[in-house]
Write a protein that binds this DNA or RNA. Structure first.
Ligand code: SF4
Ligand code: SF4
Lengths: 142, 142
DNA sequence: GTATATACGACCTTTTTAGTCTGCTTTCAA
DNA sequence: TTGAAAGCAGACTAAAAAGGTCGTATATAC
């Protein structure tokens, strides 16, 4: 509970890495997976999901790869989580009431919405640019 | 990811229910589990954990049960989560670095601490009293 | 045309969560 | 004094979610 999933961690690592490259340059899933010791097929799926959500851009075929589509200054943690995990719900009934045996008698459903809203607001306000503070920009090229 | 566990939900439901009873009155795990359609053995464990953490007080033996030990005005969401799930860590390396294959190459470990701190701060600041807003206090006695 | 890359979905394995069961101890009250 | 009602503890099983793998299709540079 309340732990980042590997999907999100991998996505953040990749986004941050791309940010350190020359703007516009492409990087392949394999290159990133090698550098960060991430299973390449898995990272592939993560990057594909980020591409679907237009956080990154993909180039097909040989000499293809991925590049940032938005600056980390405008990207937020909320967008990444949403792209990789789908809409954020703190309790299951907010997606599908039928899955909860306590739905009828529940006395916390409404109040929990407050918490969820504030948490979501926080995620949406957290800009990924904060991740690169004090990290030297390492020049990298393919 | 980022979902309340049933343990925490059950704990919150029970705490909120106890708050609606006459101050000092006892309630058994069975009574609460019946009222909220929670498996009684499971709720028992939850209440036992809350007792160990001194959020509630337990009375042994026949005619025993549980009662609040602190007012919801002073109890926080952070305390409940901590009692039921243990210390809050957003990423696994903060508990045990050896369990992460990406530890050596990780470029997000430090920045994630910021997020964790703010999230934890939020949980610790959220008082359970907010849960009972606008709910009528139902008199209940055993 | 072939090598290299993304894209997608099915599948398997591992880990975590949820729930169950058994047996014990404590206490009340008949 | 004894049985029922409660809390307490831990092992166990079942279900669900997360993490990881594989096969194959498709796009593109050369
Ligand atoms: S217990 Fe209440 S809050 Fe949790 S999922 Fe069920 S209805 Fe929603
Ligand atoms: S990937 Fe980085 S942040 Fe996540 S657990 Fe491993 S070391 Fe920690």
């Amino acid at each position: 509970m309340l732990k980042l999933s590997k999907k999100v961690e991998y996505g953040l690592m990749a986004l941050l890495h791309m940010d350190s490259l020359e703007p516009g340059s492409l990087v392949t899933a394999k290159e990133v997976s090698d550098q960060f010791a991430i299973p390449s097929e898995l990272l592939g799926k993560v990057l594909q999901a980020l591409a679907r959500a237009s956080l990154v851009e993909s180039v097909h075929g040989a000499r293809g790869g991925y590049r940032l589509k938005q600056s980390l200054d405008t990207l937020t943690l909320g967008e990444v989580v949403d792209a990789l995990e789908g809409p954020f719900h703190l309790v299951r009934c907010h997606e599908n009431p039928a899955t909860c045996d306590q739905f009828e008698s529940c006395n916390i459903r409404e109040p929990v919405l407050q918490i969820q809203d504030r948490l979501m607001g926080y995620l949406s306000a957290f800009r990924l640019a904060e991740f690169r503070s004090k990290r030297p920009a390492v020049a990298g090229k393919r």
